[in-house]
Amino acid sequence: MLIRPEAVSAGAARLIGRMSPLVLFIALWYGACSSGLVNSEFLPTPTKVAAALADLVSGGEIARNLFVTLFRAAVGLALGSICGIWIGLMMARSERFKAYVTPIVGGTYSLPKSALIPLFALWFGIGNVTAIAAVFLACLLPMIVNTYHGVVTTPKVLVWSAQALGTTDRELPSQVLLRSAMPDIFTGLRIALGFSFVLAISTEMIASTSGIGKLIFLYGENGTYDYMFAAIACIVAVAFVADRVTLLGMHRLLRWHESAAADYERRRL
């Protein structure tokens, strides 16, 4: 598929158009600081923050801590997703399993997962395990719920057709059920991704010695607010990119889906 140059420049123009309110915002920020409207104690100028960011990036400070945070989020997300998909699938296939498991799942739904961070700190100390455990539990629920919904809404005629074409009961989940559930599973994945960041950062702020969350917290304590703002901007950018990448992956893998075309038009939000 050739990419037409007009399409590229049109796309770039659209992107710049969409981003201009941000530029406006930064301009306002700068104006508010330099005009003395806002005490620079509480709001460093954009230039100072940018300088701090450059320093952090070049010094490797950001990279190191970011890696730790992302590692914890990714491992928790991966484990939580795999277990969540399995549990959701089992719940959809077996009424007995569902009946036994539902109250436990329902209970964790109402529990704010970050409340477990002190408990995990008690059990596992102040290292990676606590963070990963918290992320794992947080990611579990959306994956269970979405997988369950996706599998349960698989049209009967698809299952029957597959069976008439020689699909064994063992092959049914991988060949039909999980594939039919893919759109729902991906929706759950996007939610879980958001949770993984929140829980990783929360854990780091509460009970950790490393990671971006800890870094932000430390800068705040030390009073080096330009570095604090820079670190926050960093994690916001990374979370945004991660979400967009997932969305892109989702659209590629769900090309076959009815609404795939419609979704692609609504790229925003």
Binding site: V157, W160, S161, A162, R179
Partner: peptide, 30 residues
């Protein structure tokens, strides 16, 4: 169910995640 009795539904029941040729080849793959 068995492969000795093929079934065709009113709703077509094609696997939406497979292309035309992969749909047709589904039983062969099994």
């Amino acid at each position: 169910p068995g492969t000795d009795r093929g079934i065709v539904f009113q709703e077509y029941a094609l696997f939406p995640w497979l292309t035309v040729e992969d749909n047709i080849g589904y039983g062969l793959d099994r």
